[in-house]
């Protein structure tokens, strides 16, 4: 049974995934990837696995974004 909220979140997830792959600006890609991780954490929680949701929210949204931004600041921003 897919509710409307599930459908909206999954659509947002697909749009984010396509946008990350298509966009040319790397900093924008990192920000969109953080949004992807946040929605993914909400979906994990709705699927009934709060443990994975906490890890996804902490690692995918927090630490990975920081590491990507640190890597971009050492290299070029444009692809």
């Amino acid at each position: 049974m897919i509710t409307i909220l599930d459908f909206l979140l999954l659509m947002f997830l697909i749009v984010c995934a396509i946008a990350v792959a298509r966009i040319r600006d790397l900093l924008s890609a990192v920000v969109i990837f953080a949004a992807y991780s946040l929605v993914m954490a909400i979906i994990w929680q709705m699927l009934g696995s709060p443990d994975v949701a906490i890890t996804e929210a902490a690692l995918g949204t927090g630490v990975t974004t920081f590491l990507f931004i640190a890597a971009i600041s050492r290299t070029q921003r444009a692809e």
Binding site: P50, D51, A53, I54, T55, A58, L59, G62, V63, F66
Partner: peptide
């Protein structure tokens, strides 16, 4: 829910 890995990642995010 939680544990060593998730909690450590949260604390590390605060330090970062």
């Amino acid at each position: 829910p939680g544990g060593g890995f998730a909690g450590g990642a949260v604390i590390a995010a605060s330090f970062i």
